[in-house]
Design a protein around this nucleic acid. Structure first.
Length: 508
RNA sequence: GGCCCACUAGCUCAAUGGUAGAGCAGUUGACUCUUAAUCAAUUGGUUGAGCGUUCGAGCCGCUCGUGGGUCACCA
């Protein structure tokens, strides 16, 4: 092995080799399991009458050794499998002293074993397997981080649990192995994804898959990752959004489409940003942003109902209620109330910058009017949006793919959903006018510095698609990781990613 | 990228600038209903890396690394 092993690991490696010399395969290819821990307990309870089963419940269990308590001529142990933990009871009377000593000395915490016998109740009432045969399934070389559970008044108290975030994220396998609530969190994440699909499928949406490697990136303002196809001599970008491909599908006659997948943005990392993250986008022909708002409320409630069984959740100490209708706040009004500036009274970039200066707010140098509005939103309004809120009607120049309002061409029909002080989703009445769209692309190129990597590249094929005719439609995008944070009360996006992005370590 | 904090045994944590410790895990032994089993004994350290200050550094200073927080960035 290339890495240096600790003395404990070297001892275990030596133990494993000795077992092999004794004819014990430390990694046999097959296991026999008749019951999971839960199934064995359920089978006993079903057969049970007055504390005794009518017929013996014989089971072979398999799992990881989590506790061994030798007591002379008997030994208690716990193994953990996918369903939970179950106790084993081994007796010299049943197994012979030699077998019991083998179990006590050759098996270690973390090993996978299988054990056969009859289910019974101990004097304390715990359903337990009385073991008549056992076998090693996989030897552990590295000791699991010590974590013991103590039950106090029905509550499980963890001792010396693995808590160092770096180890937990870098060695997620160890984190999962010893922290059962981490396993539960990722089961919940899977349930969230399943519920989102169920809801959208039920609404007649078609799940599709579009390219991750794209010759032209677009649909969002973000720096892309660049890669290269060797044989084609072609630079490619990892997608920063699905938007432009999904809307091409509306041109093709698919009226309701959605995609759940990975987006990649080459930007800073933070408690709510990971370089790759899971995005949900859907597009719905003949919907506008108001209908998308209602669909959003229904969808989030559907997920909450199915995953949590309720529509409220406590996030970082504050109760959040997802029940519709969510508060609706016009962006102009929200900024007026929190920053004291009426953006409608500041029609140009300089007007707005002056208004901000007058309030003691330093406008970002070089920012467009839209970016200044975004600054006011992020600094003043966003932190106040704890309960689910739709902010709506956004400035045109930060929304190049959204349709303008009929009575106000400088404002677009767009909303963002905010919960717990951060952005959860983003949606608009999609721009389907190819002439206006081309003008927007050109505007973006003008307004942004030519070196600004976030400027929107022109996508000629997208414009061609739109010229074939795109039905009016409402589009929606949501960070699934952030929804998962909310529903699992996780303060950090890394908690809801199995393998969050971390810097390389020199020693690895 | 800036600033702040952290990094000590496998895990969780101690240690006035003066001999690096505890609990759990490990090892050895006792124990036939235990469950953080208990009891007795015991192994285990390049204190993140390097350089410096000092008679003497886990502790003070500098550089670097990693992580966390925060700001910047992120429609």
């Amino acid at each position: 092995m290339s890495v240096e092993l600790s003395s404990l690991e070297q001892k275990q490696l030596e133990k494993m080799r000795r077992l092999r010399e004794q004819g014990v395969d430390p990694y046999p290819p097959r296991a026999e399991r008749t019951h999971t821990s839960r199934q064995a307990i359920a089978a006993f309870e079903a057969a049970e009458k007055d504390g005794e089963p009518a017929v013996p419940v014989v089971a072979t269990l398999a799992g990881r050794l989590r506790a061994i308590r030798p007591m002379g001529k008997i030994t208690f142990a716990h193994i953990e499998d996918g369903d939970g933990k179950i106790q084993l009871f081994l007796r010299a009377n049943d197994l012979g002293a030699e077998q019991l000593a083998f179990f006590n000395h050759q098996f270690d915490l973390g090993d996978f074993i299988q054990a056969s016998g009859e289910m019974f109740r101990t004097r304390t009432g715990e359903l337990t397997l009385k073991v008549t045969a056992f076998r090693l399934l996989a030897k552990a070389i590295t000791p699991l981080p010590a974590a013991k559970d103590e039950v106090v008044d029905g509550q499980v108290v963890r001792h010396a649990l693995l808590s160092d975030p770096e180890t937990r994220y870098r060695q997620r396998y160890a984190d999962l192995a010893v922290n059962s609530e981490v396993r539960d969190l990722f089961r919940k994440r899977a349930a969230i994804l399943r519920s989102l699909r169920e809801f959208l499928d039920g609404q007649g949406f078609l799940e599709v898959e579009t390219p991750i490697l794209q010759p032209i990136y677009g649909g969002a303002a973000a720096q892309p990752f660049v890669t290269h196809h060797n044989q084609l001599h072609q630079d490619l970008y990892l997608r920063i959004s699905f938007e432009l491909y999904l809307k091409r599908l509306l041109v093709g006659g698919l009226e309701r489409v959605y995609e759940i997948g990975r987006d990649f943005r080459n930007e800073g990392v933070s408690f709510k940003h990971n370089p790759e993250f899971t995005q949900l986008e859907f597009y719905c022909a003949y919907f506008d942003y108001l209908k998308v708002m209602e669909l959003t409320e229904q969808m989030i409630c559907y997920v909450a109902d199915h995953v949590l069984g309720q529509r409220t959740v406590v996030y970082q100490g504050r109760e959040i209620n997802f029940a519709p209708p969510w508060r609706r706040v016009e962006l102009r009004q929200g900024i007026l109330e929190t920053a004291g500036i009426d953006i409608a009274q500041a029609p140009t970039r300089n007007d707005l910058a002056n208004a901000m200066e007058a309030k003691g707010i330093h406008p970002k140098p070089g920012a467009t009017r839209g970016k200044l509005i975004d600054q006011l939103l992020g600094d003043h309004l966003e932190p106040t949006l704890i309960q689910p809120t739709f902010l709506y009607n956004y400035p045109r120049d930060i929304s190049p793919l959204a349709k303008s309002k009929l009575d106000d061409p400088q404002t677009v029909e767009r909303f963002e959903g905010y919960v717990a002080g951060f952005e959860l989703c983003n949606a608009f009445t999609e721009l389907n006018d190819p002439v206006d769209q081309e003008a927007r692309f050109l505007e973006m190129g003008r307004d942004y510095d030519a070196r600004d990597e976030e400027r929107h590249p022109m996508d000629e094929d997208y414009l061609r698609a739109m010229r074939y005719g795109m039905p009016p439609n409402g589009g929606f995008g949501m960070g699934v990781d952030r929804l998962t944070m909310l529903l699992t009360d996780s303060p950090n996006i890394r908690e809801v990613l199995l393998f969050p992005h971390l810097r390389n370590r020199e020693d690895e």
